[in-house]
Design a protein around this nucleic acid. Structure first.
Lengths: 235, 235
DNA sequence: CTCTGTGAAGTCATTCACAGCG
DNA sequence: CGCTGTGAATGACTTCACAGAG
């Protein structure tokens, strides 16, 4: 355990490891070596050990890791032992789809509010969970009242910066952004951008490529689609 | 121009450059130097030049790049001069939201079909564009009939591999996957995964961090949120 | 004897810095 | 003289390989 700075690549992989451990736990597996984990999920065993070693010595030499124990450690490290409350800005197609998306809950995230500037939508309630839609101007107040700590930007690119500014002013420190736009981010705030335009255009390049430069991949079966040195950059 | 292998990071950035050039063109700017481009959009000028130089010598020494000319070159390189037809598998919240999403069209993508296994949904038509929902079993035929060349996976994680297999059997070579799952990919097929679980859990880590390791960012204003060596890995 | 934790080596990406074209 | 295109330098991430704990 060395107190270096933790790369985002590492935290992304911790999330993957956690998912793998959940699978193992569900299958009743009690212990697992880094090598077994690597083989089963197409990861690299040294990388697993190194990632984990940043946070402590969780393994037992000659044995491996205790699945349940490691699961709890990673949950704690990722802060998933704390509940998070999410506010989604933009109650359009994407925003409402995300509000109904169940994948949030599994990681201890609850969608507490939607925000929009459309008079028609404000005051409505969305989905089975009946999540209220507030005026986007009230972000500050609602964030406080609802103890929201994570924001999602699901507005058109042209409004994204303005929305982000309001979000940051409300004191939110973690933002998931779906707008295909460059955003200026205040220090101490973390924005993760999911840019579908870039993803699609990059796929298009792959299709456009004349020869088999396509054979960039080392194996035909790819490790968890390589959460490695490719892709998953900040935007 | 050296015919090396092109990294996905480069193609991602080409998409960003294209977006920047569109902004410049809309503002009536005719030429731009790599340095001006870098400053305005928080990029690195050497990287821009290097990325572009992979594909040819588009610049003019002493002048820079002709905006319109470069725009067309990048459009061609990314294969965005060809129309793409998209099939979305999974007509749930996310799938239908994506079907209605307009951002696709701007890059010459058209959503031609949705697929689902829910009898209730099959036969319906979704959204303003009235996109038909087909039985997921008919992927092969519809892909042929509708000349679909890009697939989107918007189904639960447990079905994702099976769906991908059908997609690959239908001859699709480019896939955008939203299922938080490890997928085994056949050689010659490109899968880009957008894993919201990982994104969220990684954000959670940031919130959980006790000290200011938060200050990972070099500048307070971040270059297009750094499509660099951080994030944007394959999953 | 197995498997972790980790220094060292290797690989890949970004940035620097400059020769040389226009 | 300004700016591109690019080799060289730097930096970041991954993988190797092994000492040593259990």
């Amino acid at each position: 355990m060395k107190t270096e700075k933790i790369s985002e690549l590492t935290t992304n992989r911790l999330s993957v490891y956690l998912r793998c451990l959940n699978t193992l736990a569900a299958a009743g597996i009690k212990t697992v070596s880094s090598q077994a984990l690597a083989e089963q999920f197409h990861l690299n065993s040294a990388q697993i050990r190194k990632d984990l070693a940043y946070f402590g010595e969780f393994g037992v030499r000659g044995v491996g890791y205790y699945v349940e124990d490691l699961r709890q450690h990673i949950t704690k490290i990722l802060g998933l032992d704390m509940a998070h409350r999410v506010g989604i800005v933009g109650a359009g197609n994407l925003g409402t789809a995300l509000a109904n998306y169940n994948g949030f809950m599994q990681s201890n995230f609850t969608v507490a509010a939607l925000f929009d500037n459309d008079k028609e939508k404000i005051g409505q309630r969305i989905g089975e969970a009946s999540i209220p839609v507030y005026d986007v101007k009230k972000i500050g107040r609602i964030v406080r009242e609802e103890a929201i700590d994570v924001a999602v930007i699901a507005v058109p690119a042209r409004s994204a910066q303005q929305v982000l500014n309001q979000i940051m002013s409300a004191g939110i420190k973690a933002v998931l952004n779906f707008a295909p736009a460059r955003l200026d981010v205040r220090r101490g705030v973390k924005v993760k951008t999911v840019d579908l335009t870039i993803s699609l255009e990059s796929l298009s390049y792959f299709l456009a490529e004349p020869p088999a430069t396509n054979v960039t991949r080392p194996r035909s079966t790819v490790p968890y689609e390589r959460i490695g040195r490719q892709e998953e950059r900040e935007l």
